[in-house]
């Protein structure tokens, strides 16, 4: 069932077109990744979907119904984890979670259970009486998440939830997201960190300049580009002639030297490594460490747009 449907969305800020006929369809049970560099329109799209921003053209439906600022029935099924931490500075961890949960759940005893579960879920047990200013950045992000998911929404929007957090907290957050999905939530996850999106998202959309550039599973996206794998071979005494020779191999897309490593992008094929190593041996070039890596989403983005995903980690 299509939970979120966005069709030809246009949003302008004066002359700037933030969303340019943007379309998206998200099925129930997915972790849908929205990947793009800063300024690509991810947050604008999310805000329009949530009714926080008016838009100029297009249609948006959630759970099959149009979303308006007064669609309280729809809102009851949605949770958000915004990019900026949205908690009250004067309330404790428990008070914050309880308050935001109370905006959806009126039954006190049920809400108490949900708050306890949310605190456990994000790993804030022991910090319940702390106020936000006493929490580290990572714990604050966890609190931000708890406030958004305590009421057990069926559709969760997570807008760059791991910005400026330590690796341990990031892993904790990503594990939590997967757990939420297993419990039945559909999650829309926006980020400019391709590693996270690759790790947890079942389907990914790459967007830039307010447009959808490509979408599919991780595998499908990588299959869209010509590159099958990237080889990195540690070489000594590489010269321009060697690089030219490597480039002349039929499966090679590009070849460069980077800090003592011969980097070769190859098309999909079963013998790419053998071909390159044979060439090196013929030329009498000694080599050391060898790495063979599949293409990344950055490679996909690069091939589609000609530029790299900006602000990579």
């Amino acid at each position: 069932m299509t939970i979120v449907s966005v069709d030809s969305l246009v949003k302008r800020y004066g002359e700037l077109v933030a969303l340019d006929h943007f379309s998206m369809a998200i099925e129930g049970g997915e972790i849908f990744g929205l990947l793009g560099p800063n300024g690509s329109g991810k947050t604008t799209a999310i805000n329009c979907i949530l009714g926080l921003l008016p838009y100029d053209k297009g249609t948006i439906t959630l759970f099959g119904e149009p979303m308006t600022p007064t669609s309280y029935d729809l809102k009851a099924r949605i949770g958000i984890v915004p990019q900026n931490v949205a908690v009250f500075e004067e309330l404790s961890v428990r008070e914050n979670i309880d308050y935001f949960c109370s905006l959806y759940v009126t039954d006190k005893s049920r809400r108490r259970e949900l708050v306890d579960e949310a605190i456990d879920f994000v790993g804030l047990s022991g910090y319940e009486k702390f106020r936000p200013k006493k929490l580290s950045g990572g714990l604050l992000r966890r609190l931000n998440i708890a406030c958004g998911i305590a009421h057990k929404p069926t559709l969760i929007f997570m807008d760059e939830p791991t910005v400026a957090v330590d690796p341990q907290t990031r892993n904790h957050i990503l594990e939590g997201i997967v757990r939420l999905n297993h419990e039945g939530a559909t999650i829309i996850y926006t980020s400019h960190y391709m590693e996270e999106v690759e790790e947890i998202c079942s389907r990914i959309m790459i967007m830039d300049h307010g447009r959808s550039l490509a979408q599919g599973t991780n595998t499908e996206l990588k299959a869209m580009i010509g590159m099958g794998e990237r080889l990195r071979i540690e070489v000594a005494n590489a010269d321009d002639e060697l690089i030219a020779n490597v480039r002349s191999l039929p499966s090679v897309i590009s070849a460069t030297i980077d800090q003592g490593f011969l980097c070769v992008d190859c098309k999909t094929g079963a013998h790419n490594l053998v071909d390159v190593l044979e060439l090196l041996q013929c030329r009498g070039v000694s080599f050391g460490r060898i790495y063979a890596e599949p293409p990344t989403l950055n490679d996909v983005f690069l091939e589609i747009t000609g530029t790299e995903l900006r602000d990579e980690r």
Partner: peptide
């Protein structure tokens, strides 16, 4: 001020909650 979606993340979060604006 803390109810307005445009003044900060707290206002945005509150404005898309299930509790009617009038009640808030």
């Amino acid at each position: 001020n803390e109810l307005l979606p445009g003044t900060g993340a707290v206002g945005a979060r509150r404005s898309i909650s299930a509790l009617q604006h009038r009640s808030q």
